[in-house]
Amino acid sequence: MFVFATSDKGGTGRSVTSTNVLYRAALNGEDVCYLDFDFGSPTAGAVFGVSGVERGTTQGRGLHRYLHGKAVELQRIDVWQEARVLGGRPAGAGQLVLIPGDEGGGEFNQPPSDELIQRCADLLSHLNEEFSVILVDLSAGRSLATELALAATGLERMSRIESRWLVFHRWTRQHVLAAEGLVYGVNGLIRQAEARGHDPVIFRRRIRFVRTATTEPSSERERLGGLSAAQVAWLQQRNKELDLLASNRQVGRVVRLGTIPLDPVLQWQEQLISNEDVGRGVANEATLEAFDDLAERITDKSTWEQP
C-alpha cells in the first residue's frame, strides 16, 4: 500500500508525524518504508536520527538521482540499525527502511517525462513487493513531486495497488482553508489526479485529513498550562467556529483520519518519540497514542470506506 503525505503549507508537522506513524507501524510488526520525495529539502534522515543524511544523502544514491537515472543503486537505510536512538530491531518489529533524497537535489523543474513516470512506477511497485506500507513524503504545496506521484499511480498497471493520501494541516482558519484549496481547488489534488488518469470519485475516497499541533480547550485550566478563564472561553469559541468552518469546507470530522496533539518535544525538536520518552515524562502519552491510532487507521480497511 502507498501512503502519500502532503500539506499545503510548510511547518504543519507532516514529516515528523509521518516518520513517527511509520515507526509505530514498524513496532507493531509491519514492514514499512519511507520515501523522502521532498526533493528540495529532504530532511527525513534528521527526524529519524540517522547521522550523515540529515539533509539527504551525499553518496549520490538518493531518490532524486535514481529517478533521473543517474544513480547505480538506490541507497536503503535500515533505520533500526542506523538511527542513533533506536539501537537495533526489537523482536517482533517489522522492517523500517528509509530511502533518502539527495542533498542539494532540488525540486524537479519540469513536468515529469514518460520515462520518469515509468521509472517511478517501477520503483513503487518493486517496493510494494516487499513492504506492506510505503509512505511517500511529498513537499508542501503544489509540486512536481506530487505530479509525479499522481502520474505514476495513475498508470493502469498501478491501479490495483491500494493508495491513500494524507493531507496535514494545523488547526487554524488559514490552514483549514489552505487544506481545502489543496484538495478541492481549481488546481487541487482531485483535478490533478483526474488529469493523470485517476477516477475523481474513487480518488476522492482515498483522501483523509490529519490535524496537527492541536490543543483541546477545556475548562480544566491546569491542562492548558494556567490560562485565564477568559482565554479558555475564547479558545472554546474559536474551536467551535473552526469545527463549523472545517465541515463546511469538507475538511471536517467525517474525513479526518487523526488528530495529533501539540507536544513540547516536537515543538522543540523534530524527532521520533519512543516509549522511553513517555516513560521518563518528557513526551506526552497522548502523542504516542495519537501516532498509534493513526498508524492503525491507515491500514484499517473500514476507515477508508466511503465517508
Binding site: D122, S125, H126, N128, E129, E130, R157, R160, I161
Partner: peptide, 20 residues
C-alpha cells in the same frame, strides 16, 4: 524483472510480501 511485473494480467495480490 520489472517488465514482467508491469503486466496488466497480474492481480497484484500476492500471498505474501517478499524481497527480491
Amino acid at each position: 524483472l520489472d517488465r514482467v511485473q508491469r503486466s496488466a494480467l497480474l492481480d497484484r495480490a500476492p500471498s505474501l510480501k517478499t524481497r527480491r
